[in-house]
């Protein structure tokens, strides 16, 4: 190993690269296949340079050339950490087309490798929360029951009891959690994107975050034993179904029962 050493930072690059690559979904796994041939080739500085290039192209218009932010338009990205970058770009919220009250989840514009590069660049500017490892978001051994208790105390008020999302003030919305990956949920808690408060690792420990994630994931995967879910948003759709489905069906039945008998051929 030592004979192949090319750069003093290479071991760190392996570690960082490995963390990044395992954290960003199956696309990253494919990339890891290539990387396994020459894991050390992506040096951190090269990655940061690539990230910087992407940043200037995709992000700097709003966030400023040095990621210092533009007042009233876009926040400073110094110190937000790799987790924030990964969350924003992997959920497609960034790069945003235009500033708005709420950026919706979209298919990501950057590929996992580009995301990793930008994340590395932003991290190099001032640290901040890192992307969670796959072990940190693994649900093995997690306690969804405890997660439920935490979820209703600190999450459900915005995201609804099963993560369907909800309305906030001035056109902002707490997004539904139906598509969020465990990594993204973890990152959101850690970094508090947009209007969301921060739940750092000392207020909600990584273990508790896993419990919450386990609750969210199990809830959304759980089939609806009582039939169609009606959106799982509670009594509003139930009321609509009661009127437009049940009452209307009964009205049709009543109309049939009392309909005029067909004309008797008479006289």
């Amino acid at each position: 190993m030592s004979s192949r050493r090319r750069h003093p930072l290479a071991p760190y690059a392996v570690v960082v690269g490995g963390l990044l690559l395992t954290g960003i979904g199956y696309a990253a796994v494919t990339a890891a296949g290539d990387a396994s041939a020459s894991p050390a080739r992506i040096t951190q500085s090269a990655q940061i340079a690539q990230g910087h290039a992407i940043f200037l192209e995709e992000c700097a218009t709003c966030h400023g050339q040095f990621a210092q932010g533009t007042p009233g338009v876009a926040p400073s990205l110094i110190g937000v950490g790799a987790a924030a970058v990964d969350f924003q770009t992997s959920t497609g919220r960034m790069p945003a087309k235009e500033p708005s009250a709420e950026n919706d989840r979209k298919p990501p514009e950057l590929n996992p490798q580009e995301i990793a590069a930008v994340a590395a660049y932003i991290e190099s500017l001032g640290g901040g929360p890192t992307i969670p490892t796959s072990a940190q978001v693994s649900q093995r051994g997690a306690n969804p029951g405890f997660g439920q208790q935490l979820f209703v105390a600190d999450c459900a008020q915005c995201h609804n009891f099963d993560g369907a999302g909800g309305a906030l003030t001035y056109g902002k919305f707490a997004p539904p959690l139906t598509k969020s990956t465990p990594t993204q949920i973890f990152e959101a808690m850690l970094t508090g994107p947009e209007a969301m408060p921060v739940f750092n690792n000392t207020t909600i420990t990584p273990q508790e975050k896993r419990d919450i994630i386990a609750y969210i994931v199990q809830t959304r995967q759980e089939p609806n034993p009582g039939g169609f879910s009606l959106g799982r948003i509670g009594p509003v759709t139930e009321g609509l179904v009661a009127f437009l489905g049940l009452l209307l069906a009964m009205v049709f039945a009543a109309m049939w029962i009392t309909a005029k008998h067909r004309k008797i051929p008479n006289e």
Partner: peptide
Amino acid sequence: PGDFSSPGGMIT
């Protein structure tokens, strides 16, 4: 207070 150090944090 040191545990709850991230501005924008909220907890019950």
